[in-house]
């Protein structure tokens, strides 16, 4: 059966998604708890920002609605991330420890694809409308233009891409560790850092988190640009970061594969 590579990957992805969805859906209590967890998470983030603004007018240059829109933007990225990739990071540390990765590596698809896109988490699709609802609500409050509304999906994709690339790179370090679970916590800390706008950080940490570990570009770049088009260099920086991270990823991933010792040999 000859088919184009793109079609092949799409066929495999569809099957991986439906298989993992049916597994996850069979754990009904876990499924409901996950939905609940997502909702509480959204609520706690938005409420914290809101409570702070009960006592101050602005944080940096932004007022309440502007920061809330930023938070909503990050929540939406987080929601898609949770749905499409997040489980796979945990699976990777597990698969390396148990040697299950062996089977993944011999599959005739690119290992990055098979490792990081194997499992989806369907519960996130339940909370997806909530995340988008929040995003749209605050989008209206900060009076986005028609152009801005068109740009948002694109920026969400770019932000998600950058976040994933950085996380893939960081996760590659699991190849060198017997117990890689801690790396997942490191990843989550990077997400935490990105959940606040870049002007919150002092100049040195801001520089580091924009260049060496560009987590601040994920949300701050697009949202700044949406509010003020003079921020276009941030979007350029974001695109450069994506390109750079992509090549770094391919490089370190190959070294990681070479270094993979496989458990219990």
């Amino acid at each position: 059966m000859k088919q184009s590579p793109l079609r092949h990957y799409w066929q495999v992805y569809k099957k991986m998604a439906s298989t993992s969805a049916s597994v996850e859906m069979s754990f009904r209590i876990s499924f409901c708890l996950l939905v609940l967890m997502d909702l509480f998470f959204f609520l706690s983030i938005l409420a914290s920002v809101s409570f702070i603004y009960d006592h101050v007018q602005t944080i940096g240059p932004w007022n309440r609605d502007q920061l809330l829109f930023f938070s909503a933007f990050m929540l939406t990225i987080d929601n898609i991330h949770m749905g499409l990739v997040s489980t796979n990071f945990w699976m990777l540390s597990f698969a390396i420890r148990t040697g299950e990765l062996d089977f993944t590596l011999i599959k005739p698809t690119h290992s990055l694809f098979t490792v990081f896109f194997r499992q989806i988490r369907p519960s996130s699709f339940v909370t997806l409308p909530v995340a988008w609802g929040i995003l749209i609500h605050y989008g209206i409050k900060v009076q986005l233009s028609a152009l801005d509304w068109c740009l948002i999906p694109l920026f969400l994709i770019l932000g998600l891409t950058l976040l994933c690339l950085i996380e893939f790179i960081v996760s590659t370090s699991m190849f060198w560790l017997t117990e890689g679970t801690g790396i997942n916590f490191l990843r989550m800390q990077m997400q935490q850092l990105s959940r606040w706008p870049n002007f919150v950080y002092s100049s040195l940490s801001r520089k580091v988190l924009t260049t060496a570990l560009p987590v601040l570009l994920i949300g701050s770049a697009p949202v700044h640009f949406i509010y003020d088009k003079n921020y276009w260099p941030l979007i350029v920086a974001m695109l450069v970061a994506i390109a750079a991270c992509y090549s770094v990823l391919l490089f370190v991933w190959n070294i990681g594969l070479k270094n993979y010792d496989s458990a219990s040999s």
Binding site: Q11, V12, K15, T19, S22, T109
Partner: peptide, 16 residues
């Protein structure tokens, strides 16, 4: 957590 057949169907896609 799923029947073997589901895994087979996924493998069918992998190996075309």
């Amino acid at each position: 957590d799923i029947p073997a057949m589901d895994s087979f169907l996924l493998l069918q896609r992998f190996y075309e």
